[in-house]
């Protein structure tokens, strides 16, 4: 985006799908690929590997500016349902300025997401309007497109071949190009997908002019409830040198969550202190 272009007040809206993709695209597990892969097949496996439901996560965003100063926002993340038909709830714990701010997103395939936010200072729940795809998510280096649930068919894929080893994993390098350029801020994306797990370990994202704008790197793969994924992801904005680190402190899959929490009315009564039964 050119610096003089019109920018808007970017907000938190699709937080529901937010962390889902950014995190879960990397949290995949089986199956292990055979010898002669097809690019689309590799990506399909990455997308479809998440069979989890009722997810709980404790994580934090650390945003580093050019000068290296950083701020950290920690939150809990809950999701019931599975991708495409889910409700997610994000509650911020720190810093104190945003403590208690809660975001609820109700996603259903084919229907635009409904999003709600609760702000403790004004003690009210408000509906939030969906944001532009290129808008930054709560002041991080992630854009809303980066954290949204990505649809497999929105891109075409081309295998560029075997690439370097990342974090000890052999990788395939795949080029993804949007089918409809109006639906993505990117002209193309390079993915480095682990050959031994359907996890994207590294991405390079190129804007409409073909300039590299962001780099996403995943590390510290861990296995939880039989699902393996990274605990550390770093998104770097190439032009301005800022970066955001997403650190996942705790993940639980398939632990049943109380569905009554996932309503706008319940947002105001939330007192967050860990996985809620």
């Amino acid at each position: 985006m050119s610096s003089s272009s019109v920018c808007r007040v970017k907000l938190l809206s699709p937080v529901a799908s937010a962390c889902v993709c950014a995190v879960l695209l990397c949290l995949a597990c089986t199956p292990v690929f055979a010898a002669s892969p097809d690019a689309r097949q590799i990506m399909e496996d990455v997308y479809r590997q998440d069979t989890s439901h009722d997810t709980f996560m404790r994580a934090g965003f650390e945003v580093f500016d050019k000068e290296g100063r950083h701020t950290k926002k920690t939150f809990t993340y809950r999701r019931i349902g599975s991708p495409g038909d889910s409700k997610t709830l994000v509650v911020f714990n720190a810093p104190k300025e945003i403590r208690g701010v809660a975001l609820l997103s109700i996603n259903r395939t084919g229907v635009s997401d409904r999003q709600y936010m609760y702000i403790p200072a004004t003690q009210r729940v408000r509906a939030v309007v969906p944001q532009e795809r290129s808008a930054h998510f709560i002041g991080t280096d992630f854009t809303f497109e980066d954290i949204a649930e990505r649809v497999l068919d929105d891109f075409t894929y081309r295998l560029l071949g075997e690439a370097e080893t990342i974090e000890g994993h052999k990788t395939w390098k795949i080029e993804a190009t949007p089918v409809d350029s109006s639906r993505s801020q990117y002209k193309f994306i390079y993915y480095w997908v682990a050959q031994d797990a359907p996890v994207i370990l590294h991405s390079e994202l190129y804007d409409a002019q073909g300039r590299e704008v962001r780099v996403l790197h995943a590390s510290q793969l861990k296995r939880v409830s039989g699902i393996c994924g990274p605990r550390h992801m770093e998104m770097t904005s190439v032009p301005n040198g800022t970066r955001t680190v997403l650190v996942i402190d705790e993940v639980k899959f398939n632990a049943p969550l109380d569905e009554t929490l996932f309503t706008p009315q319940a947002l105001g009564q939330l007192h967050d202190s860990g996985p809620v039964r």
Partner: peptide
């Protein structure tokens, strides 16, 4: 010009 968006939208909303 030097700024592309609100520095911290979450704080902006959360702090009256």
């Amino acid at each position: 010009r030097s700024q592309t968006e609100i520095a911290d939208p979450l704080t902006y909303l959360a702090q009256p």
